[in-house]
């Protein structure tokens, strides 16, 4: 057991030494791996950020009910209470004409707001109710039914359902996710080929060493071990570099995006990777590197036999 540990430590250090002896080639391969891993990671962050955006609407469509302009406060309250009792509704918020006006004033940033208002002859906005349906009802069929039911209530002017936009948005994210998955698989395959080829060259460069090692009683497992370490280390280093690039990319888009975020009254739009996701990228790099080395070794190492 102690020997086993010693052997692995020796191989690990020797592999680092080998990498350091040919820094240009090592960095070249590591960068290729990093960029290969970067593309799917970037796409993942993009999707996650978009989902964060859609989550800020709780991922569910909203119904906006505009009451008739001439409805009195008492009438409006009655309608609000009636709607609140509906089983398909999770949350209902009553917005008075005054509140609506204040919100509009905040967003419009026009200095002459009050003058314009005067021109209109007072507050033109009606009282409204913003509804969020519960989960079971948050599909297009149920929502359309709900809309029909609510429109029968007296005193309601119009009901707006932001269904199309939400659905379209979710469909786009779904498509992009699928493309991302496909791209990840293809790039993962590419990574295996890149590392596999590097290992193949390494095996050919070390032909003599492999031959002599086999002659003095080195087992196949012993002979292949440094190559597995090499592949795994390349993958791990590639993953670390790709994380660094990811941080850099996030930093670059953060400023323009935060301007956009302020419009949506959110803190940041860029999705921050969690520790588990960072670990997953590193593990993915290492695992793909190991897999590539395994594959390459299986193809090329056994052919080298002492003569």
């Amino acid at each position: 057991m102690g020997n086993y540990f010693i052997r692995h430590t020796q191989v690990f250090l020797a592999t680092l030494g080998d990498m350091a002896r040919s820094p240009a080639a090592t960095i070249n391969t590591v960068l290729i791996i990093a960029i290969t891993l970067l593309l799917p990671s970037l796409l993942y962050v993009l999707i996650k950020s978009s989902q964060g955006l859609s989550d800020s609407w709780q991922g569910r469509p909203q119904l906006s009910i505009f009451l008739q302009k001439d409805a009195s406060d008492a009438e409006a309250q009655l309608i609000f209470q009636e709607i609140q009792l509906h089983p398909a509704i999770e949350l209902a918020e009553f917005v008075t004409p005054k509140q609506a006006l204040e919100e509009f004033r905040l967003l419009s940033e026009t200095a002459s707001f009050d003058e314009e208002l005067e021109f209109l002859g007072g507050n033109p906005l009606p009282a409204s109710i913003v509804l969020m349906p519960n989960k079971q009802s948050a599909n297009s069929e149920n929502l359309t039914e709900l809309k029909d039911q609510l429109s029968k209530i007296d005193g309601i002017d119009t009901i707006r359902l932001d269904l199309d936009w939400t659905e379209r948005f979710n469909a786009i994210i779904g498509t992009v996710s699928r493309i991302g998955l496909l791209l990840s698989i293809l790039l993962g395959l590419g990574l295996v080929l890149i590392v596999g080829n590097t290992i193949k060259l390494l095996i050919h460069n070390r032909r003599d060493e492999i031959e002599v090692t086999k002659l003095v009683g080195g087992t196949n497992i012993f002979v292949r071990r440094p190559f597995l370490y090499y592949g795994t280390l390349l993958g791990l280093l590639g993953a670390l570099f790709s994380l660094a690039f990811l941080l850099l990319a996030a930093g670059l888009v953060d400023e323009p995006l935060s301007k956009l975020a302020s419009l949506y009254q959110r803190q940041s739009l860029v999705y921050q990777l969690e520790a588990a996701e960072v670990a997953a990228i590193i593990v993915a790099g290492g695992a793909l590197g190991w897999l590539a080395a395994r594959w390459s070794v299986a193809q090329h190492l056994w052919r080298i036999k002492p003569r």
Partner: peptide
């Protein structure tokens, strides 16, 4: 040293 490294002898 190679034949000894192969059998995992301590350094």
């Amino acid at each position: 040293a190679l034949p000894l490294i192969v059998i995992g002898m301590p350094h």
